[in-house]
Computed example of a mutant assay.
Amino acid sequence: MESWICLLLFVGLPKTVMFTYKAMKAALSKDYVTLNPTYIYFYNGLNTVVLICLPAILFELISNEVDNIRSILISNSLVCSDEVLLLEIQRTLDYMRFRPMKYSICRMFPLNASLPLKFVSLCVTYIIVCAQFTSLV
């Protein structure tokens, strides 16, 4: 899965920039014959963005669920009277503290909720650069 996400990031960035640039160019042109491919370009760019952002969003949801489990364990440890159960709860909390819920893609990009925003901001930056170097209309 890690190599799949990494491949999507490296291939998806130029693909998304290209499709968004072509959609902008077709939308700003006066020729209405070229408006039909605009939807195709927009759909392909959106498809790539969703494929890149979905694992980060799902991982963030799982991380929030782990935090909820941790808070439930802490509240149960305060009211627990059984020594064996209390020991197991403490062992689980120690494990969760020493092994936090973190994942990185190829040890370069942390997989969290900020990854989609970083990807979109990088795409917008390159689209602005492409628009400045070429004339859209």
Rank of each mutant, 00 (worst) to 15 (best):
S135V: 12
C130Q: 07
P116W: 00
I52P: 02
I5K: 03
Y103I: 04
D31R: 12
S81I: 04
V84N: 10
T38D: 01
S77E: 14
T125P: 00
P110S: 07
F119C: 06
R107F: 07
K30D: 12
D31L: 10
L73R: 06
S63P: 01
P116I: 02
W4C: 03
A113V: 09
C106F: 07
F133V: 14
L85E: 14
T20P: 00
K102P: 02
V84W: 02
F109E: 04
E60R: 02
N112L: 03
K102S: 11
I127A: 01
S29I: 08
M24V: 09
F133L: 14
V49W: 00
I5G: 02
C53R: 03
F98W: 12
F42E: 07
V49E: 00
T134F: 10
V33H: 04
L51C: 05
S3Q: 13
D82E: 14
V11M: 13
L7D: 06
L111R: 02
D94I: 00
P100I: 07
L9E: 01
R107C: 10
S81C: 04
E2A: 03
M108F: 11
Y39Q: 14
E88W: 09
Y103Q: 09
R107P: 00
P116V: 01
R97E: 12
C130K: 11
M108S: 11
E65H: 08
C123W: 01
A23L: 12
I52S: 07
I5Y: 03
F10M: 06
L117H: 01
I128S: 05
I62E: 14
R99P: 00
M18T: 09
S135L: 06
L9Q: 00
M24D: 00
T34I: 15
F42A: 15
R107G: 08
I74P: 06
A56S: 04
P14Y: 06
R91E: 12
Y43C: 03
Y32E: 11
E83G: 00
P37L: 14
L111G: 04
D31N: 15
F10L: 12
E60C: 01
F42I: 12
T134S: 08
K15F: 07
K102G: 04
M101Y: 15
Y39G: 15
V11I: 08
T125M: 06
S114N: 05
Y41S: 06
M18L: 13
L87W: 05
I40H: 07
I127C: 13
L93M: 07
M96H: 13
N44T: 03
C80T: 09
E60D: 07
K15H: 12
L111P: 01
K102Q: 14
Y21L: 08
I105F: 08
A23I: 09
E65A: 12
S77C: 13
K25M: 13
E83Y: 02
I40W: 03
Y32N: 08
L7Y: 04
D31F: 09
S71C: 03
E60L: 00
M24R: 07
S71T: 11
R97G: 01
S71G: 02
Y43N: 10
T20L: 09
